[in-house]
């Protein structure tokens, strides 16, 4: 089980990494940022499962998951070119381009909070719960302002 979790997190980091690395080529920025966010969601699911005891606690796996989130938070900013809120399959809100400074600040905070969670290296499910509390609020704070369902 432990191994499985590690593999999954590692795989998601790697696939996220490859996706990001290819970014300067002809990759579609909307797909890039959505892949990045899905990696974040996957990593979040891993740590939340551990904190709730649904998945065995694995300190290395937890740190790997926070690293995945940290990596995305530091690189995803480049995939929001002007006008890409108009793409058919994006939920990125026009508010991002109306308030790019605010959006970048939210990304910076997400990056800082995930860095702190890595630093903390939670040694028990309780500590992991605390780290999760620190990181988890970033999701809805940003999605509240900068994301909109388009049906």
């Amino acid at each position: 089980m432990k191994k499985f979790v590690m593999t999954l997190v590692a795989a998601s980091v790697v696939s996220g990494g490859i996706a990001f690395a290819a970014s300067h080529g002809a990759m579609d920025p909307v797909k890039m940022r959505k892949d990045g966010m899905q990696t974040v969601g996957l990593a979040m699911g891993q740590v939340a499962g551990m904190a709730k005891g649904q998945v065995p606690f694995d300190p290395k796996g937890a740190v790997a998951a926070f690293k995945a989130m940290n990596y995305v938070s530091g690189t995803i900013g480049q995939f929001f070119p002007e006008g890409s809120d108009m793409a058919a399959d994006t939920t990125a809100a026009p508010a991002i381009w109306e308030d790019m400074d605010g959006f970048n600040a939210a990304l910076a905070k997400f990056q800082a909070d995930t860095a702190a969670a890595i630093e903390m290296a939670p040694a028990s499910p309780e500590d992991l719960g605390k780290a999760l509390g620190m990181v988890g609020g970033n999701c809805k704070d940003c999605h509240e302002k900068y994301r909109v369902k388009k049906g």
């Binding site: 966010m37 969601g41 996957l42 979040m44 699911g45 939340a48 939920t91 999701c139 809805k140 999605h143 509240e144 994301r147 909109v148 369902k149």
Partner: peptide, 18 residues
């Protein structure tokens, strides 16, 4: 919790409701 089964999170005006 504000998270979907896929660990997407709640957004927009639903954040307050949640």
């Amino acid at each position: 919790t504000g998270f979907t089964p896929e660990f997407d999170s709640v957004g927009g005006s639903m954040v307050d409701v949640q």
